[in-house]
Amino acid sequence: MESNKINYVELPARDLALNKVFFSQVFGWGFKDYGPEYAAFENAGLDGGFFQADFCSRPQSGAALVILFSDDLEGALNRVTSAGGTIEQEIFEFPGGRRFHFLDPCGNEWAVWGELS
């Protein structure tokens, strides 16, 4: 393990079971439960987990924005909406790529980016 590097990220979830189903369906993540109030995610690119909480993580309230990469941005957007996520900002271009923002079923804001075609 490297010292002084980001090692783990934790995010709140009002409904752990719902978020586990959502991220499994949309992004293919796995989960390992550590009791009824915590689930670590696996195969997500960075280690982390969801903890039971009655609040959510949004950049507007000062939280960091977690950004995922996809080589099929439109497909990712369709999977997000099909699985019950809410599009917060439609696909837009920025220098170096395109991205969209979404809310997971627990209200946490995420973004997904892809390279310019």
Rank of each mutant, 00 (worst) to 15 (best):
P12D: 00
E90W: 08
G49T: 12
A111E: 13
R79I: 06
D104M: 08
R79D: 12
R99M: 15
N7L: 06
P95E: 13
R79C: 05
W113D: 12
R79V: 04
L65M: 12
G48H: 13
E88H: 14
Y8P: 00
I91M: 04
N7D: 08
M1Q: 04
F41S: 02
F23T: 05
C106H: 02
E93D: 15
S57A: 15
D71H: 15
W29C: 01
G97N: 11
N4G: 07
E42L: 13
E10S: 08
L16M: 01
V66E: 00
P95M: 10
F69Y: 13
D71M: 08
L11Q: 02
A44L: 05
A44M: 07
F69T: 06
S82I: 01
T81Y: 05
C56R: 06
K5S: 13
G97K: 11
H101Y: 14
D33I: 02
G35N: 09
V112R: 08
S61C: 00
G84F: 07
E74W: 00
C56Q: 11
I91R: 05
G85E: 04
A40I: 06
N4H: 11
S24V: 03
Y8A: 00
S24Y: 12
W29V: 01
F51E: 11
F92A: 09
G28T: 08
V26N: 06
G30C: 05
C106I: 02
R99V: 01
C106V: 01
P59G: 00
D33G: 07
R58L: 11
E74C: 00
G49W: 08
N19D: 14
Y38D: 08
D72M: 05
L73V: 07
G84Y: 05
E90F: 10
Y8F: 12
D71Q: 14
W29K: 03
L116M: 10
E90D: 15
F50G: 06
G114Q: 03
P105C: 04
W110C: 03
F31W: 11
K32P: 03
R79Y: 06
D47C: 09
L11R: 04
L18A: 14
K5N: 10
N43S: 12
D72I: 04
L11D: 01
A40F: 12
E10F: 08
F102S: 04
L73A: 07
G96Q: 14
F69L: 01
E37C: 06
N78L: 10
N4W: 06
K32M: 07
Y34H: 14
G45T: 10
W29E: 01
E115L: 05
E2Y: 06
Q52R: 15
V9S: 03
W29R: 04
A64I: 08
T81I: 14
G97V: 09
I6G: 03
F100V: 07
D104W: 09
G49R: 10
G85Y: 08
P12W: 01
F22E: 10
N19Y: 03
W29I: 02
E10T: 09
F31D: 03
Q52W: 14
R99I: 02
L16W: 03
F100P: 06
G114V: 04
A76P: 10
P36L: 02
W113I: 04
W113F: 12
V112E: 05
A64D: 00
D15E: 12
G75V: 04
F94P: 09
E37G: 10
Q52E: 15
D104I: 05
W110D: 02
N108P: 13
F100T: 04
N19P: 09
T86N: 07
D72A: 13
L18C: 09
S70H: 11
E2Q: 08
V26S: 07
S57F: 03
L11G: 00
